[in-house]
Design a protein around this nucleic acid. Structure first.
Length: 738
DNA sequence: GCAGTCGTCATTTTT
DNA sequence: TGACGACTGC
């Protein structure tokens, strides 16, 4: 049954580089498998080799395999690596993100999915705007119904597979309003032919679940389903996979429960356990040999994560040596901490490349002080995160015009474009249009056409806008995408708008110039997109817009320069660096007080585990005794995680001199090392633990957020349910265990 | 429509 | 402390 892609001899490169566990996973018989892939254990390798193995050794047709990832980056990497392994046309493979695959199906079966052929995808920002409009339409004040929460509600419902009509009225007023908003929002999307991210998945799931023909088609097609980062799947994604697999589809899931750090956005680690029940014959394969880090780093990581309960269980080991000890730096304050990082970076600059260094932190706000220190030391750095190219204001402004060209029903784009740049169509006019549109159940564009004459003062402006779009449509018909783009930027007045801003005020001029450059870049992007990739039944414009929505692009293209990498722990997941600084290891900051409060200490610990396992050779940990948080100086205790890392893995390093220290220890030689055990290992008197519930005679019930000091002077910070957060002297507070 | 001012809020984020 | 959104006055 072997296909002629490869001969037997060619199978060698597929299995030769694998260790026994990897080989077991890759060459497993066609049965469901859950591969528990520890950090740095060759997860991607197993996934790609498995895929290649199925084709080359099992004779599976490339068309019968579906491989799903979470990010575009992961999908691209998989494609690239498969290409290197076997000579199979990668385009024949269904390799993509959950959203990308769902999108592909919905475009194919738009009629069955009950979508307009030219439906458009909206991103989180568009969704928020739309929700705000809907709230206005329902006359609900957005301080009582915060758009953020509403979006959260809608997305959470969709990710649970719930439509508004399926939500039961529990007699709760607030709940009822949320359902009402959800209904109205969904209605607005239908009218405008818009699909948000969660909707892509939900529609695709419903399509495959409810349409017998389509279901049979894809079940026949996808004999094998491979999933990456399985611990991050949400309820809906899991349900969809089950529908696609049916009784005979074979699921090969790769994930690591210890790296599950996205429960707050719907990820369900439980899916890993459910899989064993839902897919008969499923077996677990553990990948525990680590190829990334030193023995010391792994020992630290293993020691830490062992404190978690409810694990599937796994112990990383390496054939490499112990390597250098982990260095722990007790900084006086956050400036001192940043200075330590910058100095070490400066040292490393001579030894190696700066891009081998990463600074990881829990929350974005921590980056500022680090940046300032790096700038002082003239060390180039790059921050991952923040606004990406296609999320920039000027880009989204331009895209609104293009979306309106593609689809006049798109109210969200109409709202955005109609008065950007300002052309005298203000809030009053718009509100009038919206009211009529709602009443007549029509889109804004149609309403504007019929009502223009009755709009009084702004009638002319509205009519001019309508003509602008129509004229643009006529003039760009049949033109290449980039030409359409360029013309839209000119005619809309957007270029002029930013040009005046650039020429004007000195302060904002620089930013306006950057915006102009971005507009040029957008035209360039369109140019390189003029031959649409697959499924080109779509017109190039819709195809481009979908691409833009699904792949918002890199944050900054300037990857050229060699620089230190700064990012949050979440953003670091999946990456590795020769040397890693993990900063801000203080209770309250990391683990974050809010997470502890919400009972998510274990997820914080997993996040720390992710951080530790990013390092290949050298790991630096640091905390500040005092830190400015929201303007106020706060004394924080070393993170509970520092006590959970085996003390023998760490050495404590002290500052060069006491310049920034209030009280430099006199005997403190530069880089003096002492045992870390002293300062962080003692237990909290009374044996209290972080996150533990306690009761206070006066303040009632609360949760321990952090503690510092020692012995008689130990202080605890407790968040009380009714009276807020208080700092108490442990010996005086007479807390009871709750 | 814009600039200036005030009040509020402050974890993590891909698609 | 500082960023952002809402509001106010020209």
């Amino acid at each position: 049954m072997k296909m002629d892609w490869l001969t037997d001899a060619d199978l060698t490169p597929l299995v030769a580089p694998l260790n026994p566990a990897q080989k077991e996973a890759v060459t497993a018989p066609p049965q469901p498998r859950l591969v528990l892939a520890g950090a740095g254990s060759g997860k991607t390798r197993v996934l790609t080799h498995r895929l290649a193995w199925l084709i080359a050794a099992e004779g599976v047709s490339p068309h019968s395999i579906l491989a799903v990832t979470f990010t575009n980056k992961a999908a691209a990497e998989m494609r690239g690596r498969i290409e290197q392994l076997i000579s199979v046309p990668v385009r024949a493979l269904w390799v993509g993100t959950f959203h990308g695959i769902a999108h592909r199906m919905l475009r194919r079966h738009w009629q069955q999915a009950r979508l307009p052929q030219n439906f458009q995808i909206i991103d989180a920002d568009d969704q928020m705007r739309l929700v705000k409009q809907v709230l206005r339409g329902l006359d609900l004040p957005d301080d009582r119904w915060p758009p953020r929460s509403v979006c959260g509600f809608i997305n959470a419902r969709k990710e649970e597979g719930q439509r508004p009509q399926q939500l039961q009225d529990q007699g709760d007023y607030s709940q009822r309003q949320y359902v009402r908003i959800y209904t109205a929002y969904q209605n607005a999307c239908e009218v405008s032919g818009l699909v948000d991210f969660a909707e892509l998945l939900l529609r695709a799931h419903e399509l495959c679940r409810d349409n017998a023909e389509i279901q049979a088609h894809y079940r026949r097609s996808f004999r094998h389903i491979l999933v990456d980062e399985f611990q991050d799947t949400n309820t809906l994604q899991y349900a969809w996979l089950r529908v696609l697999a049916g009784d005979s589809g074979i699921l090969f899931a790769v994930g690591d429960d210890d790296q599950s750090v996205y429960s707050w956005r719907g990820a369900r680690v439980e899916n890993m356990l459910r899989m064993e029940h839902d897919f008969p014959g499923a077996r677990i394969v553990r990948l525990e040999q680590n190829y990334r880090s030193t023995g010391t780093i792994l020992k630290a990581a293993n020691g830490l994560i062992a404190k978690n309960s409810n694990r599937l269980g796994k112990n990383l080991w390496t054939a490499a040596g112990d390597g250098a000890a982990i260095q722990l730096y007790a900084a006086y304050n956050e400036i001192d901490e940043a200075e330590f990082v910058a100095l070490r970076c400066a040292e490393q600059r001579a030894a190696g490349r700066l891009c081998e260094l990463a600074v990881l932190y829990r929350s974005n706000a921590q980056s500022r002080v680090l940046e300032e220190a790096l700038i002082r030391h003239r060390i180039p750095y790059r921050i991952h995160g923040g606004l990406r190219f296609f999320e920039r204001m000027e880009i989204k402004d331009t895209l609104a015009y293009l979306r309106l060209l593609a689809n006049r029903d798109d109210d969200a784009s109409f709202e955005r474009a109609v008065n950007t740049p300002a052309r005298g169509i203000g809030a009053t006019t718009l509100e009038r249009l919206r009211a009529v549109a709602r009443q007549q159940q029509r889109c804004l564009w149609q309403t504007a056409q019929t009502q223009a004459a009755e709009l009084g003062r702004s009638a002319a402006a509205v009519q001019k806008f309508l003509r602008l779009i129509e004229q643009l449509a006529t003039d760009t018909a049949g033109q290449p995408l980039s030409a359409t783009m360029a013309l839209a930027i000119e005619r809309s007045g957007l270029r002029e708008h930013y040009q005046t801003a650039a020429a004007g005020s000195r302060g904002g001029g620089e930013q306006a110039q950057a915006r102009l450059d971005n507009l040029d870049e957008l035209v360039n992007a369109a140019r390189s997109f003029e031959r649409p990739p697959e499924d080109s039944a779509l017109d190039p414009l819709t195809s481009f817009l979908a691409h833009v929505a699904l792949e918002a692009g890199e944050q900054q293209a300037e990857a050229g320069e060699d620089c230190v990498q700064l990012m949050t722990l979440h953003a670091a997941k999946g990456l590795e660096f020769p040397a890693v600084f993990l900063v801000g290891l203080e209770n309250g900051l990391f683990p974050h007080a809010r997470a502890v409060d919400e009972g998510n200490l274990e997820e914080e610990r997993r996040l720390c585990y992710v951080g530790l396992t990013r390092a290949q050779r050298q790991l630096y940990l640091s905390y500040a005794e005092v830190r400015r948080i929201h303007g106020a100086e706060q004394r924080g205790a070393p993170s509970i995680f520092l006590r959970e890392i085996p003390a023998e893995c760490m050495v404590e390093t002290r500052p060069r001199s006491g310049v920034l220290r209030s009280l430099p220890p006199a005997s403190c030689a530069p880089h003096r090392t002492v045992s870390a055990a002293s300062s962080i290992s003692e237990a909290l008197p009374g044996g209290y633990r972080l996150g533990e519930s306690v009761r206070h005679a006066k303040f009632g019930e609360g949760t321990i957020l952090s503690f510092d000091g020692s012995g008689e002077r130990t202080q605890v910070e407790v968040r009380f349910k009714s009276s807020g957060t208080k700092r108490l002297l442990l010996s005086m507070a007479r807390l009871e265990r709750g």
